[in-house]
Amino acid sequence: MKTNGARILEGLGIAFELKEYEVDPDDLSAISVANKVGMPPEQVFKTLLTTGGPGEYVFAVIPGDAELDFKKLAKAAGMRAAEMVSLKEVQPLTGYIRGGVTVFGAKKAYPVFVDETVILFDQISVSAGARGTQLLVAPDDYLRAAEAQTADLTKDPAPVQSSSMEHGKYGHKGGRR
């Protein structure tokens, strides 16, 4: 399905890939989407609409396994504070339903802030503008198309205990020979 997001990227001459997945209305989480599209959750970015007050809206785009730090976002966006827009306001403000929000082709061109980790990857996945469809695109292209700024936007994870840490899944682990 060709979405608004796809059309806008095409118009800019940006290479991308559309990936469809089966939607579970009871689980629209980015982690679930990541599992379905077969990418690590840190590469599947979720698009959140936030507000700094009446008439002040900002998109925050962060990794699927991370939690938005509103203080960091507010600082990056020059707002006094930030909070999530209520669910019922998402569609009227963006034109997209929850689970299908993209920064491309939203009702208004709200400023876009993307977590700085976006540059760590060759490719990221973001919603294409409809539930069940993801855009796979190079970070630089995404930032350019979204006219986005990058900043550290996420909460620092709690320290992980060694005994329970799953390790080496995406990395490297020295073994004894």
Partner: peptide, 10 residues
């Protein structure tokens, strides 16, 4: 990005 998601045990 000087380092990108490096995981190593020593």
């Amino acid at each position: 990005a000087a380092l990108r998601q490096v995981s190593v045990d020593l």
